[in-house]
Amino acid sequence: MRDTEPPKQLTFDLPLDPRYGAEDFLVSPSNEEAYALIEAWPDWPDTVFLLRGPPGSGKSHLASIWATRAQAWTVSAADVAMDRVSHLISNGALVVEDVDRAAGRDEAALFHLLNLARERRFPVLLTACGPVDGFGLKVADLRSRLRLAPGAEIGPPDDALLKAVIVKLFADRQLGIDTSVVDALALRIDRSLARVREVVAELDRDALGRRRRITRPLALAVLDRMEAADGGGEGQDADEGDGEEEDAAGGP
């Protein structure tokens, strides 16, 4: 008698909080300069530093590590307003996230905050995705000040970091994963840690919904489906061809 596939299980998209402890940060050649900057605290040669890197590269994680050590507050650049500057610098240290999104907001307030930080030797760590000239800032003095700010840049993840992050993200979800799955994902996935998070979350949902373990064929099929969705086409179903390859790989 032919086996029938078990019905899909209802799944819930519950948020998985990222772990931002120092012990959770994975150091590799792509981020070691930025990590060294945080490790050098409090022996910084300046008061204002700019940490740059693509979305999901670990900027907020490093900023969180530094904020814990420096007992700093963390705010978004969008929350910096002239009537809040005095309050923001009262704590003794500050992280300002996403300064690349400050354009069109209270740029004068951010410039005033950075001036006060320099005058009072008040440490500020800024984060951004790209180069200052791409921020679209209207205040020339702020643009100049940010250009001159020392700092570090996080590059695209190398192979070792990509694989380590894949393993860690599955482990964060209490999921053991075979090395063949890790290798296949690392070979095919976009060189973006943000994309890695999306793929791992989708694989977790898919495997849970089908009540099946995550295999290499399933991982590749889900990748195909996600890439097709991004391109507006139709991807391969996650079941298609799964059994034959899985048997060849020795899976149950």
Rank of each mutant, 00 (worst) to 15 (best):
M82F: 04
E234R: 15
I38G: 02
F49G: 01
W44R: 00
V167S: 14
A40Y: 02
L10T: 15
V132I: 12
L161Y: 10
R105G: 13
K59T: 08
R69Y: 08
F135C: 05
D190K: 09
N31A: 04
V139R: 10
L175A: 14
A78I: 09
S76V: 06
T47D: 07
V165R: 03
D158M: 08
A229C: 05
N31M: 05
D172A: 15
A238D: 09
N91K: 13
Y35Q: 04
E198K: 08
D204V: 05
A128E: 13
D106Q: 06
W41V: 00
R173S: 10
G104K: 06
V139W: 03
P156M: 09
L113Q: 11
L26T: 11
D13M: 04
A238M: 10
K138E: 13
V200M: 03
D106V: 08
R205T: 07
Y35M: 10
R52Y: 08
R188W: 03
A207V: 06
K8D: 12
V95Y: 09
I38A: 02
S64L: 09
R19D: 14
P252D: 14
D13A: 10
L62G: 00
D141E: 09
I154L: 12
I38L: 08
R195S: 01
T47F: 06
Q174M: 14
E198N: 05
A78Y: 09
L208Y: 07
G241H: 07
L10P: 12
P157M: 04
E246W: 01
G232D: 02
L37S: 00
Y35K: 08
R84H: 15
A93M: 01
V96M: 02
M82D: 14
K8A: 14
E33M: 08
G241N: 07
L185E: 06
A117S: 04
D224K: 06
V75D: 02
L223Y: 03
D158R: 11
I65W: 02
P54R: 13
I65Y: 02
Y20M: 15
L37G: 00
G21V: 03
V196W: 00
A70T: 08
N31G: 01
A248Q: 12
V222F: 02
